[in-house]
Design a binder for these strands. Sequence first.
DNA 1: TTGTAGGCGTTATCAC
DNA 2: GTGATAACGCCTACAA
Lengths: 338, 338
Amino acid sequence: MATIYDVARHADVSAATVSRVLNGRGSVDPTLTERVLAAVAELGYRRNAVARNLRKQQTSLWAVIISDVQNPFFTSMVRGIEDVASAAGCSVVLCNSDENPEKESKYIGVALSEQMAGVIISPSSDRTEDFNLLPDSGCPVVMVDRQVKGVRCDSVLVDNEHGAEEATTHLIEQGYERIACITGPRRLSTAAQRLRGYRNAFKAAGRPVDESLIRAADFREHGGHDAMAALLDAAGPAPDAVFVANNLMTVGAMECLAERGRVIPDDIALVGFDEIPWADLVRPSITTVEQPTYEEGRAAAELLAHRIANPDRALTQQTLKTTLRVRASSTRPTPLSP
Amino acid sequence: MATIYDVARHADVSAATVSRVLNGRGSVDPTLTERVLAAVAELGYRRNAVARNLRKQQTSLWAVIISDVQNPFFTSMVRGIEDVASAAGCSVVLCNSDENPEKESKYIGVALSEQMAGVIISPSSDRTEDFNLLPDSGCPVVMVDRQVKGVRCDSVLVDNEHGAEEATTHLIEQGYERIACITGPRRLSTAAQRLRGYRNAFKAAGRPVDESLIRAADFREHGGHDAMAALLDAAGPAPDAVFVANNLMTVGAMECLAERGRVIPDDIALVGFDEIPWADLVRPSITTVEQPTYEEGRAAAELLAHRIANPDRALTQQTLKTTLRVRASSTRPTPLSP
DNA sequence: TTGTAGGCGTTATCAC
DNA sequence: GTGATAACGCCTACAA
């Protein structure tokens, strides 16, 4: 590997001049500039970013620690982040924590040790201290999608509570009587908020919540499947509608219903949270609470860029709006008479 | 940020001793070891990986440059890579080239500048020289999924040609007459191989290939949609079956058929390549040529680990098997009389 | 405008 | 078994 000194020797200038040419700092005689550039090309010289980072005490790499690479919600968000990062001259590296707190801690450590310029994270755990390691070490952080109390960082969220309430209210208005809820792990803010929205809808309608119709699963496909099965197998009348608090679990629940031969929405209505990929190919089409995922990514990235530029600015929190998209899965097959 | 010298001062030893304790090299008096560890804990010391990398001339980071983070095929592969990397004590960072040769070049540059320990790449382009930058700079590389001629690296592929032939033969055997093919960009080996497999099937059956039924699109959903539309809009009788050379385009083609009110498989049969996510929710279920994606990831990662350990070993190429999964979309609704 | 020299934090080599 | 010391490649005062 050629170093800056090799280039300097080749161009018959000092290493400082090479550095100046490469970084466009200070002014350099056009003749020398040309010689340096020629030497760079000839030697195939490429700046050693590690040495540069050590000297400058920072990199131009952003770490994006996402809780599940296999969830299209996150990958779509990543696109938004990348677009902003690349406009800011930074590169994005993704780390997959896989909903696993250990992996998450590991990647926080990597971001810190590698002196990443900043971190965008969708938390898998509620380990406040792990997250605070970042701001405490002076590494800018933005949390996205999920909230962890007590972490000193900016965040980008969506109005989960409102979205869930709207979805549940929609089911109530359609005349469903036994509306179940499959939510996520209690430690995750999104699960808690969406469950709260579900409860709010009943309160607003002046109806009691049947606690036996609420299940907490793990936000994965399998969890949604099993929770649905448990709801169907429970004693008493089966639910006639279900609100599922994320996309993967919605898929799982649908698979369960298909296995049992339950027809949506005739036997049971369904509303999901998050966009279902290839929703248009799924029959019946699924009513969902949609999030502006690309925008969430952009917003998080812009927040990060601002904090990097100005580490002392006040902590901010952005909340984006969700949209209820009513489709076939929640439409009453036989309209109620008034 | 505490440095190794802060720790040394705190523990009243030299920096060299701290380093030895932290790296477990050489032998250190247990008393000193304890003092060092205590100082590390007290100061919240974390080794500066950048400095370490500079000194050691290498990192423990693997770059995985994938051509589309939104394609579940790749994300599933990533899981395989991560599992092997983490067993090897390395961390994986993902880079999304987004089927964009410019972005791909950029990330190759990043991997090189950041002195990554190795790179696993699913190429988006056929820029041989860009790829060869890596081995030429001594950076171990493994190519996965797609092949680029003339690149000096190991690779992991699947038997695309055979898989495509099997799929097409299946359609022929089902009695379809006008079997179309939607393949990918000609520059990508997978597209070329799958198209060749399609042709092979006709040759084996002693039937001519109707060139007007072949379309090349971009391996994205939109491309599949438009190619399907073009096939339907073309003069002459419409195809009665179609082989689509990747998963995203299969989704696009299905959307197009749904828009036009064409029923699968009654009006037109369909076989896709790659696994369709949530295939079980899609009606009708789709016949696919399935790849062992997780295994591809594992195999690539193991090849990379071997090459890192032994840079001079001979170049290898692994080819994994595909499996035709016959489902409803390609089953003749009205069996032919003999 | 150009060159010299010091230091970023670590590890490895050498004395002790 | 332990501690100085040099070097990894680069950037940036500072001096010329």
